[in-house]
Design a protein around this nucleic acid. Structure first.
Lengths: 81, 81
DNA sequence: ATGTAGACTCAAGTCGACG
DNA sequence: ACGTCGACTTGAGTCTACA
């Protein structure tokens, strides 16, 4: 029944992490990302700091703005060995 | 630049779909799922009908209740050929 | 067992300003 | 370019009740 769940992070942590990494890769600022996603700068910042509980709709808008699939943003953070 | 995004569903649709399928597999009712996730029955129903925009925290609670990873709930719905 | 509806609460999300 | 704060509005999530 059910896959063995190895130590995993909270969904919030995953989102925050992926946003930071992808944003760094793309070399865009929080402001630019917020702009592209139609969200407010302060809110995106708060999400990256894991302070806020983003909705699935807005998570999708961020994913679209970053040109990645939504599922990537909630995917487990790989533990570099 | 970003993977070619084949025709994809909204994140909301994905969640709704996966909830219905997994719930059917587990043979549990919306009420039982809601109970297990600590959410209200009417709300879970509304999410399955794509009427409501669930937050990432509560999506995670549903995933935990179903013993699956959160990312599965937002993963693309496979098109049976 | 699910859908609907209405009334309610509090947090999601906006916005402007300052460090 | 980002964090923070405060005031504000809207919508997520609860709950009771009826079909």
């Amino acid at each position: 029944m059910g896959q063995p769940q190895p130590r995993t992070q909270s969904a919030r942590q995953r989102v925050a992490f992926h946003l930071r990494v992808i944003r760094a890769e793309r070399r865009i600022s929080q402001e630019q990302l917020a702009e592209a996603a139609g969200l407010h700068r302060t809110f995106v910042g708060a999400v990256e700091r894991e302070e806020r509980n983003i909705s699935i709709d807005n998570l999708e808008r961020l994913a679209t703005a970053l040109d990645v699939d939504v599922s990537l943003l909630v995917s487990p953070v790989v533990r570099r060995s």
